[in-house]
Each structure stands twice: as C-alpha cells, then as structure tokens.
C-alpha cells in the first residue's frame, strides 16, 4: 500500500482474496515474499491506525476478476495460465 495512485492520478484499487484461500497464500508467499499473516498485519496496521486503508476482500476468484474488470485502475491476481477473454493479464516474474 505504498503507492495509492498511478502517475496519471488514477486511483489504484486493490482486490484480494481472503487469506485462507490457497491462491492468496501462494501470491503472498511466492510473489510478495511475505507470509500471509504478515501481510495481514501490515494491512491491519494501516486500517486500525488511521494511516491508510487495506485492500478490498472478495470471496472468490471470479468475483476478483469481475471486480478488477469493473473498476478502472484496479489490480488483483489470478492463477498462472488464466485466460480472460479480450483482456491482457500481466505476468509477474520473480
């Protein structure tokens, strides 16, 4: 949550899955290099100290995809190989 707006002033809205979901855990551990509970603590500190707001939690992978598509400037994550019709999914490589 260290960058809230793009250079063009568009707000970055972050959607995530609940931390118990395997996809979220894999993204947190292998892409962000953080255990999920540590990521939660960072977001909770922002939320409960007034410093900022945590990402928006949606309950399913499809809901996450729908939320990102519905909100310009939003970001989220999908499983490797996910193909979303007419949309380009940016791969994150370590």
């Amino acid at each position: 949550m260290r960058q809230l707006y793009r250079p063009n002033k568009q707000k970055i809205i972050v959607f995530v899955l609940p931390s118990v979901k395997a996809l979220h855990q894999g993204f947190s551990k292998y892409k962000l290099g953080l255990l999920p509970y540590k990521l939660d603590r960072i977001w909770h500190k922002l939320t409960y100290s007034g410093l900022g707001t945590a990402p928006i939690v949606v309950q399913s992978r499809q809901a996450l995809i729908d939320a990102v598509l519905a909100n310009p400037g939003a970001i989220g994550y999908v499983e490797d190989g996910t193909n979303i019709k007419d949309k380009y999914v940016i791969p994150i490589k370590n």
């Binding site: 707001t53 928006i56 949606v58 939320a67 519905a70």
Partner: peptide, 19 residues
Amino acid sequence: INEASVAQTTNHDSCIHGF
C-alpha cells in the same frame, strides 16, 4: 468485522472496519 465488498460497486471511497 470487515465491510462486505461488492464487485459490482464502483464507489470504493468509503469503508468501515471493526473488531
């Protein structure tokens, strides 16, 4: 307690949290 998020909404300017 977290505010329920709805993918269809476009207004994400407000949120409520509790414990």
